[in-house]
């Protein structure tokens, strides 16, 4: 990651062209959805940044995206692929809910911290077995983590339907967490809470960890050349395992923060695919923690913006997925020209 990046005129021009391309395709899609592009953009921008409420909503929705992306990024530093963020997030959410509705330590802060630690531990546990299989048997972690998502989804479906079902709800969901576990909203009428700062804090910690810590340095070297790392005395397997565990913990934490800060229970269809969106964000951000925040903001703004677009026009809300994907495709295409061919 060390190395000077020159900002040449050509790169600037290409970046502008990239933005132009994305915007024009977006305009085309909005037009196809039955709305004039300019109005469409206006609603999207108003809906995501228009007033302090919308802006806070955009920030709030970044929380799971940032952490899910970080959950991919940290293992990627050591050359591991974590496609299981979705499952780890679900497990983490369940862990937080489990603590939240069953235990009480009396002090709000203690409660919240314990619940978050448990959520991270649950996420970590779900990342542990693919990592273990990988380092012990060289089993491809892409398959195991991917399949883990589906197994986790069914497992959670079972848990919230049977042993931990909220008997008062016709929906499959856990009981609500106790009020002492709730991370309170900071502003009237908005779901924005301290979870955002936790997520940003994690990103900063990761950034410093990677640049300044011996272990972070070992992560980078392991990812860059595992054979070399091994001969340098770095315990490659342990490092890879550790990175995967941290990744799982981050995804679990994302779930925990969602429960404590927003939903206050785990219900069916808890995650609309945070794990996969996180993967995309991470790849667009070259695994860089700070860039992840920027890209997550874009994704989140598109999401809140498209809710607003749906409110005032007849354009269906699915458009946010289309717009996000278009953005990913163009950025991926231009990446080669703008920053050259390098991964991570």
């Amino acid at each position: 990651m060390i190395g000077t990046r020159t900002l040449s005129f050509r790169k600037l021009l290409l970046s502008l062209l990239l933005v132009l391309c994305i915007l024009s395709v977006w305009a085309l899609i909005i037009w196809f959805g039955g709305e004039s592009p300019f109005k469409g953009f206006r609603y999207i921008i108003e809906g995501s940044l228009g007033n302090h409420y919308q802006f806070l909503s955009t920030l709030n929705k970044m929380v799971p995206l940032i952490l899910a992306a970080a959950a991919v990024a940290v293992p990627a530093w050591t050359g591991m692929w974590n496609i299981g963020g979705e499952g780890q997030l679900l497990l983490g959410a369940f862990g937080a809910a489990l603590v939240g509705f069953s235990i009480d330590f009396g002090v709000g802060l203690v409660n919240i911290v314990v619940a978050l630690i448990v959520s991270a531990a649950f996420g970590m546990a779900w990342a542990a077995w693919p990592a273990f299989f990988k380092i012990k048997l060289r089993m491809d972690e892409v398959v195991t983590t991917l399949m883990g998502n589906y197994i986790a989804a069914q497992l959670i479906a079972y848990l919230i339907n049977n042993p931990f079902r909220d008997p008062r709800s016709p929906l499959a969901q856990t009981p609500y967490i106790k009020s002492s576990f709730v991370i309170p909203y900071l502003f009237e009428g908005s779901q924005f809470s301290a979870t955002f700062f936790v997520a940003i804090g994690m990103v900063l910690v990761l950034f410093i960890f990677r640049k300044r810590f011996i272990t972070g340095y070992e992560f980078d070297i392991t990812g860059s050349n595992p054979v070399f790392a091994g001969l340098s005395g770095i315990r490659v397997k342990k490092t890879k395992l550790l990175s995967m565990l941290i990744g799982g913990a981050l995804a679990g934490l994302a779930g925990g923060l969602l429960v404590l800060g927003m939903t206050q229970r785990v219900m069916q269809s808890f995650s609309p695919g945070y794990g996969f969106t996180g993967l995309l964000i991470c790849l667009l951000a070259f695994n860089d923690p700070l860039l992840i925040v920027g890209i997550a903001f874009l994704f989140s703004a598109l999401q809140t913006g498209s809710v607003n677009l749906q409110l005032f026009t007849s354009v269906p809300a699915e458009i946010s997925g289309v717009l996000q994907a278009v953005m990913v495709l163009f950025v991926a295409a231009f990446k080669t020209f703008i920053v050259g061919r390098r991964e991570g």
Binding site: F276, L280, P316, L329
Partner: peptide
């Protein structure tokens, strides 16, 4: 264009999942 195959793959999945719904709506 040498883009990452996971990025493009998942982007295409999300694109098509949304696009088919979007097209059906329209």
């Amino acid at each position: 264009l040498k883009a990452n195959n996971f990025a493009i793959g998942f982007a295409i999945n999300i694109l098509i999942s949304s696009l088919t719904l979007f097209l059906m709506r329209v």
